[in-house]
Computed example of a mutant assay.
Amino acid sequence: MRPAWADIDLGALHHNLKTIRTQAGKKRVLAILKANAYGHGLSRIAQELQDIDAIGVARVDEALQLRNAGVTQPIVLLEGFFEAKQIPVLAASNIQPVLHTKHQVNQLLQADNLPQAMRVWIKVDTGMHRLGLNLEDVERVYTQLKGSRNVVGEPVIMSHFACADEPAHPQNQVQLARYAQAVKVLPESVTSMANSAALFASLAPDYDWVRPGLSLYGISPFPGGVGRELALQPVMNLQASLISIRKINQGESVGYGAAWTAPHDTWIGIVAIGYGDGYPRHAPQGTPVWINGKEYPLVGRVAMDMITVELGPHMSAQLGDTAQLWGPDLAVERVAETVGTIPYELLCNVARRVNLHYIDGHDVSGLGEVS
């Protein structure tokens, strides 16, 4: 019997990338590996994607971790640098920052004695209103950067949809029109607009780079959808052992706060996973858990190290059986919907004490903890 672990199916990862490339056509692919590759293990996933066009991360330490792990693919720093002293470090490590404020642009333009010129991306705000330069500033900034001794090559002009997971939302067309306005005056510019949802909804078919995140891991970016509807396969299979089975009589309660009381004589099973492993503490009664080809409902409160499932009055499970919390038999999208959250949160919250087992097809090719 074991506490929580996750099998990471590298065959599924490659299948998903192939599906993405088919959908993207000739566009280049920036694989989004931020937040520890959505809980799948940053360095190991990056090392597996040897033929990817570029890797996207959010933080400087993530980018440097990849370089220290021997990853040589281009790395794009999605939030850019936070202070000027980071610029030489990024230049030395060949890390490409996304510039989204005039302050960042000016810091890069004024930087002295960089070890080498940098490739850069420019983020333009087309309606998300989080990060990005205003439309009226893009042409000037592009010209400044292209003429700077600190910049090599054509800056990539990127933006981000607010509502791509709702393809019919009118905001999408508003943003596309604004983005087209921004790049129209820069005919030589390289372009990027599509995340996973925009890619599979064909919202931005005319631009150079796509930026898949969730779909790379086999998850649908659309509310109510599941990855298999897009020919994707789940990469993560989160599991834990059934470590206790016991009879509960009608009227007896289980767990903290006596939050669940047995409506009839039944059996319960204790699974060795809890909120300390990243399983959502607020998961409600009835959240499905998969054991031996059958779903069982979560009952009682989620504890730090364990959850309780009702096995029923005619229990067939055995001590030591493996429970699947989400994976190929129980879609994480469905668990997220039951819990009242999104798949991103469930995947990214997998705790560092959960061991990741990297599997190539059906053969274990590596064993390691979350990196």
Rank of each mutant, 00 (worst) to 15 (best):
M1I: 13
A4R: 01
W5F: 14
W5T: 05
D7F: 08
I8N: 03
D9Y: 13
D9C: 12
N16S: 07
N16M: 11
L17Q: 03
Q23F: 11
L33Q: 05
Y38Q: 07
Y38W: 12
H40C: 15
R44E: 11
R44I: 10
L49F: 11
I52Q: 11
I55S: 10
I55C: 06
V57K: 08
D61G: 00
Q65R: 13
L66Y: 03
N68V: 00
A69I: 01
G70E: 02
T72N: 14
T72W: 08
L78M: 14
L78C: 00
F81E: 04
E83Y: 13
Q86G: 08
L90V: 07
L90M: 14
A91K: 11
N94A: 14
K102E: 13
Q104A: 09
N106T: 05
Q107K: 12
Q110G: 05
A111L: 11
D112G: 00
D112E: 15
N113H: 15
R119E: 13
I122H: 02
T126C: 09
G127R: 00
G127I: 01
M128F: 07
G132I: 13
V138T: 12
V138M: 09
R140A: 15
V141S: 04
L145A: 06
K146I: 09
R149G: 15
G153K: 06
E154R: 04
P155E: 06
H169Y: 05
N172F: 05
V174I: 11
Q175I: 05
L176S: 01
Y179L: 00
A180V: 00
Q181V: 00
A182I: 01
L186K: 10
L186H: 11
S192L: 12
N195P: 00
L199R: 02
S202F: 10
L203E: 06
A204M: 06
A204S: 12
P205W: 03
Y207I: 04
V210T: 06
V210N: 09
P212R: 02
G213D: 04
Y217G: 01
F222Q: 02
F222S: 05
G224E: 05
G224L: 11
G225W: 12
V226S: 06
V226D: 07
Q233G: 03
V235I: 15
V235W: 06
A240P: 02
A240Q: 01
I245L: 14
K247F: 15
S253N: 06
G255K: 02
A259T: 10
T261V: 13
A262N: 03
H264W: 10
H264N: 04
I273R: 03
G274W: 11
Y275K: 01
Y279V: 00
A283M: 09
P284T: 09
Q285H: 15
Q285E: 10
W290A: 01
W290V: 03
W290S: 02
N292S: 15
G293A: 05
K294P: 02
P297N: 07
L298V: 02
V302S: 04
A303R: 14
A303E: 15
M306P: 02
T308A: 13
V309N: 03
P313T: 06
S316K: 15
S316N: 14
S316W: 11
L319A: 11
A323S: 07
Q324M: 15
W326N: 04
G327L: 03
L330M: 04
A336L: 08
V339F: 14
V339G: 07
E345S: 13
N349F: 07
A351Y: 02
R352L: 11
R353G: 04
N355S: 10
L356G: 03
L356W: 01
V364F: 12
G366M: 14
G366W: 11
S371T: 12
